[in-house]
Design a protein around this nucleic acid. Sequence first.
DNA 1: CTGGGGATGGGGCCC
DNA 2: CGGGCCCCATCCCCA
Length: 266
Amino acid sequence: MPRSFLVKKYFTSKKPNYSELESQNGPISAMVPERYPLAELPTKEDGSLVTTYTSALVWTTSSLPLSFPPSSPTTSSSIAPLDLSSPSSSGEEDEGRTSDPPSPDPSDCFQCAHCGISCSSRAALSRHQLSHCSAGTNGNLVENSNMADSTTTKAAFRCKHCPKEYNSLGALKMHIRSHTLPCVCTTCGKAFSRPWLLRGHIRTHTGERPFSCPHCNRAFADRSNLRAHLQTHSEVKKYQCGTCSRTFSRMSLLHKHTVSSCCPTA
DNA sequence: CTGGGGATGGGGCCC
DNA sequence: CGGGCCCCATCCCCA
């Protein structure tokens, strides 16, 4: 799965012109709804996930392109990269509440979506569903995806936005941030899943490059990019073709080499 | 076409 | 348990 499924799709294929963004005060708000349909507002996720980076949001809550308004599809035709299953319930934030029982018509029937048992009340249903829940003590937690089949399988915390499963709640919460994108750049409005990702992004605005190469003094905004750069100073690169022994500074280059150059089968 | 830089994502680990 | 950081990976773009 491409790792870029979260954010990049919101942009055009062209690299964003940050300098342009910075020079424009007005267009941002006009552009944002088109380009940055946040998966979810960085509103509270159980009151905890809004980072300090969002304190100066460009948008107000009311002006934000709430991902997919329940009854007004707006202009999301070209967007909708994330199939958030139930964004309409804006108050219901993720945080592992995956598979919140769909309860087709909860008004009068509290039926377990997994085993079909009917309960007399929502509370009773919740209690019952805990018997399916791998986490046990928290009704918000994710249910074991295989629970209907077996209660003996390893605990699995399933994301309600995608098929991913994790064996810890923490890992799931971390993953869910990639859907909610609570860290928003105040300059361009781009949203990120983690604060440090946002910090790295902010460097693209500020031009800060804290990582410098000891060999050529070239500076980089990202440590990983410096590491990749350091490979270019090495005669023997880190990634070697198993067939021709040629070395490459990057895995991607090796990959290109193996599929297109001399070693198509390597 | 290739190599390199920029930007960004995710999982894991540590505190 | 959450935040921060590290490492690795990938995509895009450009020289």
